[in-house]
Design a protein around this nucleic acid. Structure first.
Length: 286
DNA sequence: CCTTGTGTTCTCCG
DNA sequence: CCGGAGAACACAAG
């Protein structure tokens, strides 16, 4: 599941690879989820290029040189953006880096660049989308996102403010709410709560100052570490080179329901909180 | 039936 | 009874 660290990894990778490169062709299948006609996309992109790649929360923002438009890409659960330099077949099959062949049956969109390199948008479940928007629309969309764990705005003061007015919200629901904190998804919320030693089903108005401080520190720590490890490949996620993210080896609760807690060896609880699958330790998290 | 991210709808409380 | 917050529901597809 691409969350902030995964999307940020892809953004940083693609920036180095495709900025300024002229787009020679825009290729698509009829399964592609686009917010305009395919003709519109082709006419718009062929001959054009990307001037910058930004991100807000889990949304990738490809900035066009006209300073009037952006291409928004949301990967949802199974989307991938894979860059490939050329179509050379390496004898014996796979290259030593990429763990995926592209294009494949889940490739719905391709950008072909002037130097022969390509970007492939793959999506098994097809929940992800490409959306061509104006700068004005982007500002409206951006205004709906909460504070970003990787920016200077993510201070203890701003973090504490989030909780100040809240009453009985379930902690996990609050942390997953993109309008409050942007970028956290199911993996990092469970990991953050474990790291802070707090049950994800706690009502936020019952959290003590000490607990809030731990939660703030853990959020920063987990996200920073996950970005350093280039994300978590649990099922489907790959970076722009088709490589897996290595944070998976640091997961302490996500996907480990029924297994032993790494700290206290008791069995981790798997349950549903706020409608989402949740794993936590009854002993280590209070 | 499950999975998760997100947008919408509904309910409840002060 | 109104407004807003929070929770529940709906939807995507395999």
């Amino acid at each position: 599941m691409p969350e902030l660290p995964e999307v940020e990894t892809i953004r940083q990778d693609l920036r180095k690879k495709i900025l300024g490169k002229k787009i020679n062709d825009f290729v698509f299948t009829k399964k592609a989820r686009l917010n305009k006609t395919t003709k519109f996309f082709v006419d718009f992109f062929v001959g054009n290029h990307f001037a910058e790649i930004d991100r807000i929360g889990k949304l990738i923002i490809f900035v066009l040189p006209d300073e009037k438009h952006v291409l928004l890409v949301h990967l949802k659960m199974t989307g991938q953006l894979i860059y490939k330099k050329d179509d050379k077949i390496i004898p014996g099959g796979h290259s030593d880096v990429s763990t995926v062949d592209v294009p494949n049956k889940h490739t719905h969109v391709q950008f072909h660049f002037e130097d022969g390199s390509k970007v492939f948008f793959n999506d098994i479940r097809r929940f992800g989308y490409l959306s061509l928007e104006t700068i004005e629309k982007l500002e409206k969309i951006k205004s709906k996102y909460g504070i970003e764990p990787l920016t200077d705005n993510f201070t203890w003061e701003n973090f504490a403010k989030i909780f100040a007015g809240k009453k009985s919200t379930i902690l996990k629901a609050l942390l997953l709410n993109q309008q409050i904190i942007s970028g956290l998804g199911n993996i990092y919320v469970d990991e953050t709560c474990f790291d802070a030693g707090i049950r994800p089903d706690r009502r936020v108005n019952t959290l003590t100052l000490a607990e809030l401080k731990r939660l703030f520190a853990s959020t920063k720590k987990i996200i920073k570490k996950a970005v350093e490890e280039r994300g978590t490949t649990f099922n489907n996620y790959l970076d722009a080179d088709g490589k897996k993210g290595s944070f998976v080896k640091f997961l302490k609760v996500y996907g480990r329901g029924g297994q032993k807690c790494v700290k206290c060896k008791s069995i981790l609880t798997k349950t549903k909180i706020g409608g989402r699958g949740t794993v936590y330790c009854e002993k280590c998290q209070k």
